[in-house]
Structure formats: C-alpha cells, structure tokens
C-alpha cells in the first residue's frame, strides 16, 4: 500500500458515496445512467468472486464488500425505489457494445485459462469502459448537475491515481500487471475530456455543459 493507491481507493469510495447520497437525498435518479451502474455492478461481482476463496486483508475484504453492496444499492434505487425519476429516454447506450468486446478481450488476454482469471480480466476490461453510458447520457442531454460532475471527477481520479501507484510499484517492487495497466490507461483517457470541462467550468462555479 502506498499513498497513491490509498488516495485512489479513497477517491473511489468517495465517488460511490457521492452518487448514493445524491440519489438518496434528492430522492431522484435524474441524470444518472442506470446502464453504467449495472455495468459497474457486473464489474464488481465478476472481479470480487475471490472473496469466497482467498483472504488478502481485512481492508481488502471490507472494500470489496463495500463496492458490491453500494453498486447493488445504487442499481436498486435507480430501477426500483426512484424509478419514476430515472431518465431512461436519455440512457440509451447499447451495453452489449462494451460487454461483448470486454468478454472477447478477456479470452485473448488473461493470466491463466481458469474461470476466475477470465472473470477477473473481463472485469478489468469492462471497468475501463463502464462509464461510457453515463458520458453518452451527459453528451445527449448536454449537461450534468454539479453533484454528478463531482461523482465523475472522483471516479475518474481513482484510476488516474492507480496509474501513479503502478508506476511507483514498478520502480519500488518491480511489480507490473500489463492487463490492469493498459485497461487503466484507457479508462483514464476516457475521462480526460470530462476532466477538462470539470476544471474549466464546474470548479469555477458554472454548470457542466457540453457544446453541441
């Protein structure tokens, strides 16, 4: 555990809670892509199956359980409790366009040909693109509420901080995980456009609006 990794995890947890709190307190899922949240739930369920057969640390276990339960709760709030407020008309990104390629990539790039390793690879690739329905929705509606922007910023920062963690680990431990690193770089690149808008607009007190 190094500082970058810890900051990455804090940022990840923060993102998850910002989203849950936003939906809960406003009693509304408006502007939130349920499809992205379903993809994230699939990511966590596929990646954290090792909860059943390997124990790494209490921190690791608690975080895994937290991400699984928070993402399930988010999906529940969007599709059940506050379903009436969910903006399904604008949430139209076809998730098979990210599910199928992630699955194919997992069959090509994996560390061993076992079910759990394939599921792990699949989850890494899927996570990289799971935000696409949400970004697509923001583009389609042309704007995002400030809290949604904070959520996206925290979520994007998490993988960017992981990249610093991987650089640090490479130099200090010689640790290198090509699948996670490549997917993590792609994931971070997807947020770059958003990061720019966040810094130039949201941080200056304006609403995030996408130019047509």
């Amino acid at each position: 555990m190094n500082l970058f990794r810890l900051m990455g995890d804090v940022s990840h947890v923060l993102a998850v809670f910002i989203l849950l709190a936003k939906i809960w307190r406003t009693r509304s899922a408006a502007g939130i892509s349920g499809r992205s949240q379903i993809l994230f739930t699939i990511v966590y369920l596929a990646r954290y199956m090792d909860l059943f057969f390997s124990f790494i640390s209490l921190y690791n276990t608690v975080m895994k359980l937290l991400f699984i339960s928070a993402s399930c709760a988010t999906v529940y709030l969007i599709y059940f409790k506050f379903r009436a407020t969910y903006d399904g008309n604008h949430d139209t990104f076809r998730i098979e366009f990210v599910l199928v390629p992630s699955l194919l990539l997992a069959f090509i790039f994996h560390y061993s040909m076992s079910f759990f390793e394939l599921a792990w690879s699949f989850s890494i690739f899927l996570e990289a693109v799971a935000i696409l329905p949400q970004l697509f929705m923001v583009t389609k509606t042309g704007e995002a509420e400030n809290i949604t922007s904070h959520y996206l910023f925290a979520l994007g920062s998490y993988r960017a901080l992981y990249i610093l963690n991987w650089i640090y680990r490479y130099y200090t431990e010689g640790h290198f995980d090509p699948i996670a690193v490549c997917a993590g770089i792609v994931q971070t690149i997807l947020y770059c456009d958003f990061f720019y808008l966040y810094v130039t607009k949201v941080l200056q007190g304006r609403k995030l609006q996408v130019l047509p």
Partner: peptide
C-alpha cells in the same frame, strides 16, 4: 506471490 500482488488491488 506475484498473483497475490495483483489481487491485492481493487
């Protein structure tokens, strides 16, 4: 050991 390293991350 290397495997453990990888799976230590979230």
């Amino acid at each position: 050991d290397d495997d453990e390293d990888t799976k230590d991350e979230l």
